[in-house]
Simulated assay, not measured.
Amino acid sequence: MNKKLKQTRIQLSLGFFLAVAGLGYSCEGVQPKKTENCIIAQAAQPEAHIKKPTVKIALLLDTSNSMDGLINQAKSQLWDIVNQFTYAKCGNSVRPDLQIALYQYGNDGLSSREGYIQQVIGFSNDLDELSEKLFSLTTNGGEEFCGQVIQTSLRQLDWGKNPDDLKMIFIAGNEPFTQGKLNYKDAVTNAMEKDVVVNTIFCGAYEQGIHTEWKRGALMSGGEYMAINHNRRQIHIATPYDDIIIELNTKLNKTYISYGASGKAKMRLQSEQDQNAMALEEAVAVKRAVSKSSRMYKNKSWDLVDAAESEDFQWSEVEKEHLPESLKGKSDAALEAYVKKQRQERKRIQEEIKKANIKREAYIAKHQKDSRGELENAMLSALKQQAAKKNYRWD
């Protein structure tokens, strides 16, 4: 083969690969074709550069007076929602990432200049920090400006431009959707321009939510309107497997190795959120433990076991002064061997939690017809309907 013909073939192969690379994680189920000529191109454009689809959820919670029940539901049902995403797939096989942002609005303790609105946490996959922020919320009487909090979340958050991302706002409250100077219709129109679906959850009677325009606010963007009893206490059924999972969670925590300047504080936070979940109810602590056994719970920013799985991780860059005392004097090779052992132990414990949870869920299904909470039911119903439109599925 002459040199010019060979260069032409390589260029065509590269062009073909770049054309299909964007479809590598497509939710339309299209997979890149494999050809011998793509081998060189793949070396030039590794799969890691292909953007993975992400589910982005902005949760906007009314924290005015009378909303304590809503906040408690959010605290206790967060883990159910996260656990459902363990089974989500985009297209044929890709597991999407999950990021959640949290806003509170309608609270007198917030700045009036900001419209009584606060971003509690931006888009994040740090489940411990998200839990911490939820538990920090308190209620206080105020003005609830739905249009303004929607617009603020659209402006402040990085929604991105990946067409395969599933982008949703869930706004929950109990005052008329029309309050405030900013017309909610303008805010919802702006959401549509960003490919963001607005779902509304009215805390009260279904018909009252319709009369106060919560339903119209959702339907404008193709979202779902739902009404819940925010004061209804979720009934958790105790199972013979709860104590087993709680004990396994304690063992699981011992597999974490803090590193970096924030490592120790993050490990404390992990323990504190375990305690917060247990203080609500043992069943909530069980659900959190199940989340910690899933792919959704990753802490590479402070846990050496998770960090070491990253392709760009370098043992020589680990600052040993921030490691636990027992590990500070170890060589890189000895540290790597220890981390590998901890990873194996973690995976073993996580598998045990998963097996125990399968038995737990079967027990609940047998003894309790509806074990889901009001907020969880509303969110998952809307999530799955809208996800199906982008070829997401659950298995």
Rank of each mutant, 00 (worst) to 15 (best):
M1R: 10
M1A: 06
L5C: 02
K6G: 00
S13G: 15
L18Q: 13
A21D: 09
Y25A: 09
E28N: 12
E36Y: 14
N37E: 15
I39P: 00
I40Q: 10
I40M: 08
A41L: 06
Q42T: 11
Q42D: 01
A43L: 15
Q45W: 10
E47K: 05
H49A: 02
H49Y: 06
A58P: 00
L59T: 06
L59G: 01
L60N: 04
S66C: 00
L70F: 09
N72D: 13
N72E: 12
Q73I: 06
Q73H: 10
Q77E: 14
Q77R: 10
V82Q: 09
Q84C: 04
Y87S: 11
C90L: 08
V94A: 13
R95F: 04
P96G: 11
D97S: 07
A101T: 02
Y103V: 00
N107F: 03
S112R: 07
Q118F: 04
F123Y: 05
N125T: 01
S131M: 00
T139D: 02
E144Q: 10
V149S: 05
D158P: 00
K161G: 02
P163C: 14
P163Q: 14
K167A: 07
K181R: 14
L182Y: 09
N183R: 12
N183M: 12
T189A: 14
K194G: 05
K194F: 07
K194L: 12
N199M: 06
G209P: 08
I210K: 15
W214H: 09
R216V: 02
I228L: 12
N229G: 06
H230C: 10
N231Y: 09
H236S: 01
T239Q: 00
T239D: 03
P240T: 02
T250A: 13
T255I: 03
G260N: 03
A261T: 12
K264Q: 14
A265T: 13
R268E: 11
L269I: 09
S271V: 05
S271D: 14
Q275A: 11
L280D: 08
E282D: 07
A289W: 08
S293I: 02
S301I: 01
S301N: 07
V305S: 00
D306H: 07
E309C: 00
E311L: 07
F313I: 05
W315K: 01
S316M: 10
S326T: 02
S331N: 13
A333D: 11
E336R: 07
V339E: 01
V339P: 01
K341Y: 01
E345R: 09
R346E: 04
R346Y: 01
Q350L: 00
A356R: 01
A356I: 05
N357I: 02
K359L: 04
R360K: 12
A362G: 06
Q368H: 08
E374L: 02
E374N: 06
E374D: 10
N377E: 09
M379D: 05
S381D: 11
A382I: 02
A387M: 03
K390G: 00
Y392C: 07
W394P: 01
W394D: 00
